[in-house]
């Protein structure tokens, strides 16, 4: 499918995607988790990846994170063809991943978690520099964290999510990938995280959001990519697509009759789109 310029404020129609996947395939033994998946991510754009359980979303993330290698396909980053052999390589490229299970160390404080694995140090740790930078970063994200010297375990779910997202920003990534960032959060904390995602977009980053929650997707995403049984099954611009169309792409009811029926059904009931 052809892409139009994803954002209205973008002056030119032709833009290079910052991250571009072509023909990505991955199998685990007998399970073909991903088959020929294509995807483009542009700077300043939020792309949602949706799909049923087992559709291959997390597998795609793990390939980008350098956890798994793809069996086939190419990854282009910033116009260059790249391979991502390790999590460190993904970070070095400018790809930051916020995993579904957060990956924070509960026994360490906020600053230590933010800078974990990339501490500012000249033989001894430069705690002052790191703490200062932490405050600047958290403020830029309008994060509500009372102290950066308390253990991460004592933060609320939304605050922990904020720390995880803030951590991905250290080292100035170009693309941030969030795997179900709102799955375990309450209403207010979900809103906080959605605000953060918009904040990332305003900073000009490419954002990939994986979510099962269509309300979240429709609230913040510019574009939604549907995976079904490990294959591409639709790529829609959010303002132009209805809830029913996304759902039918996810469940596989994409042939014309069903789509038309779903759309008709939707308009008949005067639903949300």
């Amino acid at each position: 499918m052809t892409m139009e310029a994803p954002l209205a404020e973008q002056p030119t129609l032709q833009r290079e995607p910052v991250l571009s996947l072509r023909g990505i395939s991955k199998n685990f033994g007998a399970v073909q988790a991903l088959t020929d998946v294509d995807m483009d991510i542009f700077a300043g754009e939020v792309v949602a990846i949706v799909g049923d359980n087992g559709a291959g979303k997390s597998t795609l993330v793990k390939i980008l994170a350098g956890v798994h290698g793809p069996d086939a396909g190419t990854i282009m980053f910033d116009g260059r063809r790249v391979t991502i052999p390790s999590p460190a390589a993904a970070r070095a490229l400018g790809l930051a991943i916020v995993f579904q299970d957060l990956s924070l160390c509960d026994n360490l404080d906020v600053v230590s978690n933010l800078f974990l694995g990339r501490e500012v140090s000249d033989f001894t740790l430069n705690e002052e520099e790191m703490e200062k930078h932490s405050w600047t970063l958290l403020r830029q994200l309008s994060a509500k964290i009372p102290s950066v010297r308390i253990a991460v375990a004592s933060l609320s779910g939304g605050q922990r999510q904020t720390v995880a997202i803030a951590r991905s920003l250290i080292g100035d990534p170009q693309v941030v990938i969030l795997d179900e960032p709102t799955a375990a959060l309450g209403v207010a904390q979900t809103a906080e995280v959605l605000n953060l995602i918009e904040n990332l977009r305003e900073r000009g980053l490419g954002v990939v959001l994986i979510s099962h929650n269509m309300a979240d997707v429709q609230a913040v995403a510019d574009r939604v990519v549907v995976l079904r049984l490990g294959r591409n099954n639709g790529d829609f611009r959010i303002p132009e697509v209805s809830y029913e169309e996304i759902i039918s792409a996810i469940t596989g009811a994409t042939d014309n009759a069903v789509t038309r029926r779903a759309t008709a059904h939707g308009t008949h009931e005067g639903s949300d789109s």
Binding site: R91, S103, L104, L116
Partner: peptide
């Protein structure tokens, strides 16, 4: 006071997180 020490605590707190942090 060192990166090594910080890494020791991180590995003890959450190995997977430490690994993903590089």
């Amino acid at each position: 006071r060192t990166r090594w020490g910080r890494a020791v605590y991180a590995v003890g707190g959450n190995v997977e997180a430490a690994r993903r942090a590089g």
